[in-house]
Amino acid sequence: MTAMTDVAFLLLTFFILTAQFRAQDAASIETPSSISGIKVPDKNIMTIGLGKDGKVYFGIDNQQERMEMLENVAAAKGITFSPNEKKEFALMSNFGMPIAQLKQYLNLSKEQQAKIKQPGIPTDSTGAGANNELKDWVFNSRKANNDLRIALKGDNLAKFPEFKNVLATLQAQNINKFNLITGTEAPPAGWKAD
């Protein structure tokens, strides 16, 4: 009994110390899997999510930079956010709201926010249209942190045209290298990496 308790508490300590909590995501995205073994970095990463219904979500990892990014975007769009709203925004790991509805969304309580289905960030097929808000977010987040790497996290069922819009947006800003986040799958037997 004593031995078992010891082991149990040792494990408990281990799990508490190594715990990294899953961030609350704006939408659940089930990624396809690949044999690629490159790990996604923890820091300096911008994640563009693509939900199964084609909605686009956006997030960066650093809270300070989130605020900075919001300020930049707001200044460009002529919207002002209160310090409270900015704080609220900094806590969101990713979001899918058009900028016009963002202020209203930030003022809702947590329960109300959870109830709302986020409509996704507007994109377009040319990647540089006036209504394309993804380009503003990408541009201003890179202004806040120039070292940001870009990861695309698409859902299995997302249709290709929506992915193409995201791709066009990035390419229009001369971003030609990014990572696609996938699950890990075992390579076929006998396969060796070069």
């Binding site: 909590f21 690629s36 490159i38 996604v40 290298k177 990014f178 990572n179 696609l180 986040i181 699950g183």
Partner: peptide
């Protein structure tokens, strides 16, 4: 509650349009 296995990623390079 923990995420033990971190997702992996594959790199994609697209040609420069400019």
């Amino acid at each position: 509650a923990t995420t033990l296995s971190k997702p992996s990623s594959m790199t994609l390079n697209v040609p420069d349009k400019t």
